[in-house]
Structures are given as structure tokens and as C-alpha cells.
Amino acid sequence: MHITTGDKVRIAYRFDGADHLPALILSNSIGTSYRMWDGTAEQLARHFRVLRFDTRGHGASGVPPGDYSLDRMGRDVLELMDALGIERAHFLGLSLGGFIGQWLAIHAPQRIGRLILSNTAASLGPDGFDQQIAAVRAAHDMRDIAEGFLERWFPAAMLQADGPLIGHFRAMLLATERQGLAASLAAVRDADLRRTVRLVDAPTLVIAGADDTVTSARHGAELAAAIPGARLLTLPTVHLPNVEQPQAYLRAVLQFLH
């Protein structure tokens, strides 16, 4: 299923869970589709009407030209909610999805119930992003880029075992068009919410990974300190705790949302 945004971009989405349950939106890391939540959504759908979507440039969504912006990505979510008749929803965003969650809570606070910001930051740029974007655009394919992302996302033991979960995420990265990845990296490069994130008044849980090399535990602590009343949970993981520590992650999410 999909909608078409005001700027004519296809946004693919999927629902799990009964219609009468409260809405929970899941938002993905860069380089993945909504299937990054496969191990989490089934259990969350026992409690919530779970809406997953592919960020523009990823999965089955459109890949428009040019650089993307956090503002446009946030508006994609609002247009999706409007089209599906969702007035208000809880929101769980990881990495890039966490940037989108911050934007929504700042610019459309009436649409967000409880907010979970996982393995993300108020700002990561701009240092190093232009080189990374240039490397993505110059690459012949996604193979080396995919392996680089996997090395930053998972602990060495999981990578060495190269089990089905690693294969699942490798396949998502390989299926991502270089334009979509580069354009989304530009959105992260340009995003700086360090001042405005203080305006967030939604009940907020920040989840950080103690060994995260993409968005460090320090980024998570700074984000939690900036949002009034936010809670901070640091897990013994790298960048994708929903995969590395799924039960601990799910338990924390459910306890906060209930």
C-alpha cells in the first residue's frame, strides 16, 4: 500500500494490529526499509495498531532527485497520517527515524502522543558527511557501502557469524538506491535540532547504545538532557538494539508506552 505526497513522491506503508488499538508509528534507520522492524512489529501489534513506512529514497517508496531535508521527511509522515485518518499516534524512531520523530514533536506536537527516540541525536553534522555522500554517489554499486554500514551497526560476533539477521539487513542495504541513500545523508548532515528540541513536550524515552559508533551514548545522554522530563535508557548494544537485544528493547518500549 502507498500514498502519494504533495510533491508527487510515493510513500509505501504497512499496518499490523487491530483497527481499534492505539496507533504507533515506527520510523526506520537510513539504508533500511520498514522491514527493519520485522522482529519487533509482530509483538507490538498485540498492543498497538502499528504503522510502518518506507522513508523517501528507501524500500518501495519513491526516490526523487536532489538532496532531501528533514522538514520534507517530517511532512511525509504528516501527509501519511492525514491520508490514513490518524489524528494522533505514538512514535518510535531509530537513527534517521529519531530525527524525524524530533521534528514531528517540535513542529506538530498535537499529532504525537508518547515519543521514543532510539539511537539518534539532535545533530550529527556536518563534519565528514560531504565525503561520505560523495563516496556513495561515486560507487559502482552498494556492496562495499553495505558492508561499511553493517560494521557500524552490529557487534563483531554477529558479523562474524553472518547469520540470517545480518543477511536481512545486508539485503535491505543492497536494495537501497545510491541516490536515496546520498540524499538522506544530506538531510542528516543539515539537521541541527539542538536548540529547538528543547521545545518537545511529549513524554519522551531516549534509548542509546553503550557501544554505538554511529550515534554515541553521549549523543543520547545530551538529547535526553535537552528534552524536558525525558528518560534515558542505555543498553549494552551497538546501533540497532531492536535486533541485538530484541527482548530488552521490546520490554522497554512497552513499559514506556503503557
Rank of each mutant, 00 (worst) to 15 (best):
F169W: 11
R195Y: 00
S216H: 09
A171M: 07
D192N: 12
A171V: 05
H219L: 14
I207A: 01
D144H: 11
M158E: 08
I207S: 06
A135C: 02
H219V: 08
V206A: 08
H219W: 07
G148Y: 05
P155Y: 10
A225S: 14
D211T: 07
A157Y: 11
A187W: 05
A182Q: 00
F154Y: 14
I133V: 09
P155A: 10
A156F: 04
D201N: 06
D144E: 13
A157W: 13
T237V: 14
P126C: 12
T120M: 13
L223G: 07
I133E: 06
A183D: 00
T215C: 15
I207H: 04
A217C: 05
D212G: 06
R143M: 08
G148P: 08
T215G: 06
E222Q: 15
T204A: 08
Q160L: 14
V197N: 08
I166S: 06
S216K: 10
V238C: 12
L150H: 04
L150K: 08
G125I: 11
H140Y: 00
T196G: 00
A225C: 08
L235R: 01
A187Q: 03
D127I: 13
F154M: 13
T176N: 00
R195F: 00
D190G: 01
T204G: 09
A226M: 11
A146S: 14
P236Q: 05
P155F: 13
D130S: 09
G180I: 02
W153I: 04
L181T: 01
A226Q: 07
G180W: 04
G209D: 03
R195H: 06
L124T: 14
R189C: 02
V200G: 04
I145S: 03
D127F: 10
G163A: 13
A139R: 01
A208K: 05
Q160W: 06
I145L: 11
A156K: 13
R195C: 04
H140K: 12
L240K: 01
P155R: 14
F149Q: 05
G148E: 06
V197H: 06
T213S: 12
R198G: 14
P155E: 11
A146H: 02
D190H: 05
P236L: 12
V214L: 15
R189W: 02
A224G: 07
V200I: 15
L232V: 10
H239L: 11
P126F: 12
I145N: 03
E177V: 01
G229F: 13
D201S: 10
L174S: 05
